[in-house]
């Protein structure tokens, strides 16, 4: 807890948690540190189940889950609702304001401890902001975005950031220029070598 107050989240170990979740219409335990050494994790927070806001981003992460799987990445959604609420929400079909089945777990943060440790809890409302974190295979947070006021998050942008991050971690002597996408030239973080990049574009 002290860590959340003292250090920026990005660049440091993600606060670990173990919590109940709903996956495949069943109840499971999710422990964040279980992914260390195995997978990248996209952890995203949303305010509440069953609001009347189109759950486009939540379903979009599910619709494109196979793309994340190919990148050795698990997606985890979190809200302060109970697992029973999560279950009811996935059991309601999309036409009736529900989610329908998802290809990734929805975690219940009823104690609000996860939202608090990731710095996304709105204290006077008891719900989480729309925060998204990319955690690498070592369990270190490499990226975060937090949106206020119902602004959705882009799966495309998350995907791009994830791929750039994975590229950098596999090619530690290079950095990715703005708007970089896989297959494009990267840049060597050295004044002489970066000329290579600028002469190639």
């Amino acid at each position: 807890k002290a860590q959340a107050d003292d250090l920026p989240l990005v660049g440091n170990k993600a606060p670990d948690f173990e919590a109940e979740a709903v996956f495949d219409q069943e109840f499971i335990k999710v422990k964040l540190s279980d992914y260390i050494g195995k997978k990248y994790v996209i952890l995203f927070f949303y305010p509440l189940d069953f609001t009347f806001v189109c759950p486009t981003e939540i379903t979009a992460f599910s619709d494109r889950h196979s793309e994340f799987e190919k990148l050795n990445t698990e997606v985890l959604g979190v809200s302060v609702d109970s697992v029973f609420s999560h279950l009811a929400w996935v059991q309601t079909d999309r036409k009736s304001g529900g989610l329908g089945d998802l290809n990734y777990p929805l975690i219940s943060d009823v104690t609000k401890s996860i939202s608090k440790s990731f710095g996304v809890l709105i204290h006077d409302q008891g719900i989480a902001l729309r925060g998204l974190f990319i955690i690498d295979k070592e369990g270190v947070i490499q990226h975060s975005t937090i949106n206020n006021l119902g602004i959705g998050r882009s799966v495309d942008e998350t995907m791009r950031t994830l791929q750039a991050l994975q590229y950098i971690q596999e090619n530690p002597d290079e950095v990715c220029p703005a708007g970089w996408k896989p297959g494009e030239k990267s840049m060597k973080p050295d004044p002489k070598l970066s000329k290579e990049y600028f002469s190639a574009i």
């Binding site: 609001t51 009347f52 806001v53 189109c54 304001g97 119902g150």
Partner: peptide, 19 residues
């Protein structure tokens, strides 16, 4: 077939779904 959900607050209508 399925009407969109609208919330009425003080006589003003707000839509967040049925996009």
């Amino acid at each position: 077939q399925v009407p969109i959900d609208v919330i009425e607050v003080d006589g003003t209508y707000y839509g967040f779904s049925g996009c």
